[in-house]
C-alpha cells in the first residue's frame, strides 16, 4: 500500500503541488524549489533561512560587510591572504540583472596543508544558474591559472563544491606566485551561455 499511496511534498505549505511515492520523497524534497534557502555566507555561523527573494535583503541587513560590484568582468582583490587559520573573503558581483556571490576560502583540510578554494554561486534557482558560466583567473609574473565552470545556485550552496574540490583550488605556495604585498587579485568574469 505504501508504494501505491502518493504523499505530498513536505514543502506543500510553501506552494509545492507535487505528490510522490514514499521512496521518491526524500530525493525530490532535497532539490524542491520550494525548500527554504539557507544563508549563502560561508561558514555555518548564520542560521537564517527564507525564500529566494528574501536572501538579498538578509545579506544587506545582516551581512553589511559584504560589498557589491557591478559588472561582468571584475577583479576581486583579497587582502591579507597570509592571515592564519580558516578565513573567508566574500563579495557580490551584479550583472545580467542577477547577483553572484564570490567566495574565496582558506582552509586546512589536511593538517599542515592550507589550501585556497574559490567558487561562485548565483542568488537564484538551479535552473537560472545553468544559464551562466563563470571564469576565475589568477595572473601575474608571466603565469596564469584559470578555472571555468557553471555557478552553483545558492540552493545547493558551495560547501559541497569546496568539499569535492569542484572549484578553483590552489595551495599557499601557488597563491604566493600571484600575490602582491599579501593581496591576491582574482579576475572574475561572468558570461551567459
Amino acid at each position: 500500500v505504501a508504494q501505491t499511496v502518493r504523499f505530498p511534498c513536505k514543502y506543500a505549505s510553501s506552494g509545492c503541488e507535487i505528490t510522490l511515492p514514499h521512496q521518491e520523497k526524500a530525493a525530490h524534497e532535497e532539490s524542491c524549489e520550494f525548500r527554504p534557502y539557507s544563508c549563502p555566507c560561508p561558514g555555518a555561523s548564520c542560521k537564517w533561512q527564507g525564500s529566494l527573494a528574501a536572501i538579498l535583503p538578509h545579506l544587506m541587513h545582516q551581512h553589511k560587510s559584504i560589498t557589491t560590484l557591478q559588472g561582468e568582468d571584475i577583479v576581486f582583490l583579497a587582502t591579507a591572504i597570509d592571515l592564519p587559520g580558516a578565513v573567508d573573503w566574500v563579495m557580490m558581483q551584479s550583472c545580467f540583472d542577477f547577483h553572484f556571490m564570490l567566495v574565496l576560502e582558506k582552509q586546512e583540510k589536511y593538517s599542515g596543508h592550507q589550501q585556497f578554494f574559490a567558487a561562485v554561486q548565483l542568488i537564484g534557482t538551479r535552473k537560472q544558474a545553468d544559464g551562466f558560466a563563470y571564469r576565475l583567473e589568477l595572473s601575474g609574473h608571466g603565469r596564469r591559472l584559470i578555472w571555468e565552470a557553471t555557478p552553483r545556485s545558492v540552493h545547493e550552496g558551495i560547501a559541497m563544491a569546496i568539499m569535492n574540490n569542484d572549484c578553483l583550488v590552489f595551495d599557499t605556495s601557488v597563491a604566493q606566485l600571484f600575490a602582491e604585498n599579501g593581496n591576491l587579485g582574482i579576475n572574475v568574469t561572468i558570461s551567459k551561455c
Partner: peptide, 24 residues
C-alpha cells in the same frame, strides 16, 4: 578596441566562524 581595465574591489578577510563566537 582599447582593453578596458576591469573594476577592482578590495575584499577584507572575514572570519564568519568567529562571527558566531562573537555573538555568543
Amino acid at each position: 578596441r582599447t582593453h578596458r581595465m576591469p573594476k577592482e574591489i578590495r575584499v577584507e578577510p572575514h572570519k564568519f566562524a568567529a562571527e558566531l563566537i562573537h555573538r555568543l
